[in-house]
């Protein structure tokens, strides 16, 4: 019993310590931002490897999720003879929830894990130490550009996901199932509000971009510098990012639409 309490206590203290280390990374990365502005190529390179390389998976997923929404939505709405509302249903689900959340989950799996593995390996192969000994701050040079790249890429990726999803839903609903083209779009425009729905969705994806990138960078930077340690850190990035995204999504939804 006492040992269990002690274990719980140790776990709690560890968690607090890790959280502290993660929080300390933020001002350090922020301090590197000014230097980053003088070397935009560093940022572009990271937007390339984080945003551009995640683009295809997000685009494909967006189209298919939209098509499934179109199909499922049609069958349910048809029971109420309300197929014209299909556009609203597809767009609202995508813009408010699925766009930001699914993109963030894909991001954690594709870009987040890659970030953790890359930085963990840089640590394991002493590249980060090497930078320090060359009088280069590895946080400024390695973490800051990756952080901004992830933070900026996520809303763009989520927008692409939602837009392609709306098209996918249109393809299934209008082209395949014969929902009226006009009502698909007009009902949507009528019911989807720019600030309530679109902007709130963008805010969600900005928050998710921040959190996912932060978790990935922290896990990489503080990974145990062995191949097993980097592997564990990569797994933790994906699991932790996914859980945090889902939890935060509930919180944000309650705040925004509650």
């Amino acid at each position: 019993m006492v040992t269990m309490l002690a274990q719980l206590g140790r776990w709690g203290l560890n968690a607090v310590q890790r959280l502290g280390l993660a929080v300390l990374l933020l001002p350090a990365m922020a301090a590197g931002t000014v230097a980053l502005l003088r070397r935009p190529m560093l940022l572009l390179r990271q937007i390339f490897s984080i945003g551009v390389l995640t683009f295809s998976i997000v685009a494909v997923a967006g189209v298919f999720v939209g098509m499934v929404l179109g199909l499922q939505g049609y069958y349910i709405l048809a029971q109420f003879a309300a197929e014209e509302a299909l556009g609203v249903m597809v767009a609202a689900s995508l813009v408010r929830e699925l766009g930001p959340v699914v993109t963030a989950l894909l991001f954690a799996g594709r870009a987040g894990s890659a970030l953790t593995a890359e930085i963990g390996l840089m640590k394991a192969t002493e590249q980060l130490s090497g930078l320090e000994m060359m009088a280069v701050n590895p946080i400024y040079r390695v973490l800051t550009p990756r952080f901004w790249a992830g933070f900026l890429s996520m809303p763009l990726l989520a927008a692409v996901f939602s837009a392609l999803g709306v098209m996918g839903g249109w393809f299934v609903g209008v082209v395949l199932l014969g929902v009226d083209d006009g009502s698909y779009w007009t009902q949507m425009v009528l019911k989807i509000d720019f600030s309530d729905d679109i902007l709130n969705g963008v805010i969600k994806s900005v928050v998710f971009g921040f959190v996912c990138t932060w978790i990935a960078l922290y896990q990489g930077y503080h990974a145990i510098p062995t191949s097993a340690g980097v592997g564990q850190a990569t797994t933790r990035t994906v699991v932790l990012s996914s859980l945090v995204v889902l939890g935060l999504d509930f919180l944000l939804t309650a705040l925004m639409f509650g």
């Binding site: 813009v95 927008a159 939602s162 709306v166 949507m188 425009v189 509000d193 720019f194 679109i198």
Partner: peptide, 11 residues
């Protein structure tokens, strides 16, 4: 995509 969401999808 953002522009599309703003113009074609929302009001």
């Amino acid at each position: 995509a953002l522009f599309f969401l703003a113009i074609r999808v929302s009001n």
